[in-house]
Each structure stands twice: as structure tokens, then as C-alpha cells.
Amino acid sequence: MVDVPVAPVPSPSADPSPESALDPAEGVVVVTGLTKRFGPVLAVDDLTFAVQPGRVTGFLGPNGAGKTTTLRLLLGLARPNAGTATIGGRPYADRRQPARHVGAALEASSFHPGRTARDHLRAYAPQLGVPDRRADEVLAQVGLADAAERRVGGFSTGMRQRLALAAALLGDPQVLLLDEPANGLDPEGIAWLRQFLRWLAAQGRTVLVSSHVLSEVEQTVDDVVIIARGRLVHASSLAGLEALARPAVRIVSPDATGLASLVDVQGWAPVTRFAGPGEATVFDHRAAEVGAAAFARGLELHELATADTSLEALFLQLTADPEPGMPPPPVQPFAPLPGQGVVP
């Protein structure tokens, strides 16, 4: 990868990197039955998923879901209790100069504060087998060219994130595993990162980006892998996830019996499990239809609202902690947030 200008990232069409040079099979990340136990805690629990090259994949889950542990297992830094994790069909540590194939940024704090940005990168250049000037190339790529000779101790969080990304790019790897790369970036930095990751994926590279906030990566990712409590809860394309978010209308009436009979007569499939009496959520109908039906029956409504069908709400529901003794909630676009009154 040469002649890559600093941000703004060039459009994929101006991409100088030869796509044909990358073997897609070498870019596939496969996790199979992966299990990691820390004492009594199952950090990763029989996790299986695959990540495809040429796409940006969001690796999502709340804090503590096991994302970082999974990445560490993928990178051979920790050993699983069961299962396998391969990149391009091989465990990370089985490769010679693995960082030339897989670039990873695990935490934005893995720097010696007394070292300059350039020296930090150059410390790893010999083992990657890349020339020293590669350090300046990747610094320019992430917009840190001017900070090359500054000690990392004085860097802002955003600059550390960029340096961590530069370190991941040092070996010009086909596969990038980035743990929360947007943390600490300002909005401008996040916008830049989005473009940059899209650009990398457009070259046929595999880009896996973890995040605990779906909205942060929603505009960037092609695919999503969602985990919670160490287990897979959803894996699909972003479109596949969006398809789960069905339109819904929430209605509240003082006349609980009337409301129930309205739902009955209309043949709606309401969800009242999470609501109190006199409340219902109606799927696959618009507010206008529901309102008209209630009006026709003379039912008094105190609330008629289109439910929050954002992906973020769906994500929260998918990853929510199940109530003790309750089965995990079904996939619905609408559920009370933790802390809100829940009537089982």
C-alpha cells in the first residue's frame, strides 16, 4: 500500500491497491465452538461465527459480552478452553510474521509513554519484515504525520486510537481486527474512520470492528455479529438485522377490556407481555390504521405512538440481560429498557 494520502481517504475507485493480489480465502475469519472460562465466569461460551473478506463486520455486544476476549483468542494471546479460532484457515500464532497478514488494535493504551510515535512503530518493524519508512507511511495514513516525533505520553485518546490503528496497518495486513477503534475519537475522527474502514474493505480486506454501540458503526458495517454474555445472539448482514425491526404501534387505553376486544376483533397479534393492562403493542401496522380502528369502535385512547424501531433499540433488546427465571425475550422491536416497569 503506497501513495495513500492522509485523510480525507480517497474514494475506492482511486484505490491503488491491487484487489486481485488478495486471496479471499486467506481473509476469512472463522470462530468455531470457541469457549473461554475465567474461573467461574464463562467469558466466551460456545461461540461460532464467520467474518467475510471485502466487508466491514461489526462485532457488537455490551461491555463484558466477551468481544475483547474473543479477539484475544483469535490472536493467540489467550488459549481457549474449547473450540478454534482461525484466520485464513490457520491459527494466528501458526504463521510466520503473522502481523503481515493480520493487523490488530486491541487497546489504545499499549504504548510506552516515553517513546515517540515513530519509535513505537519502528520497534515492531523488524519482526514484521517491513522497512522503517513504513512507520512514517502509516502515520501519514492515520493523520499523525506531524506527531511522529512526539512522545506518546502526551497524546490525546483520539491520537492514541490513531496510533493503535497505525500499528495495526504497519504490516499492510489483509485482515484487520480492531477493538473499539472509535472510542475517544471526536465526531470528525469517527467520520474519517468510517471512510477509512470502508476504503480498506473495498480493497478486499477483511475488517472486523468491535463496538458496544451499534449506532457508532451502523453507517459503516456490512455485516453484524452480535454477542451477549459470551454467546452469539445474532449474525447476519446489516440488512438482515434491519429486517428484524418491524414497525409497531403502542397504544394505551383506560378501558382495558375494550382494548383487548379491539385487538381481538382486528386479529392483531399484540404484545402485552411487557405492558400493563390497558396497554398493547401492535406489530406490522401503522399508527393511522390502529387509530382509525380504535375510533371506529369508540375506544378511548390515551396514547398512540409509533414504537422505536431503531436498530439501537433492537440491539439493546437482543443483548439485554434476561430477567431471572425468564426465557430470553423474543426478537421484537420493542421492549422495556432495564429499569422500566416490567410486568411479566
Binding site: 494471546l77 510506552h112 515492531y124
Partner: peptide
């Protein structure tokens, strides 16, 4: 110990897993 203190042991072992 500096590698562990500043967690640079992670990039170190990524560059050379042996």
C-alpha cells in the same frame, strides 16, 4: 516489566507469537 506495565507485551507478542 515495562512491557507489562505499559501493556506493550500485547503488540510484542502479536509481532512475534513465539
Amino acid at each position: 516489566t515495562t512491557e507489562f506495565r505499559h501493556r506493550t507485551i500485547t503488540p510484542t507478542l502479536l509481532a512475534e507469537p513465539r
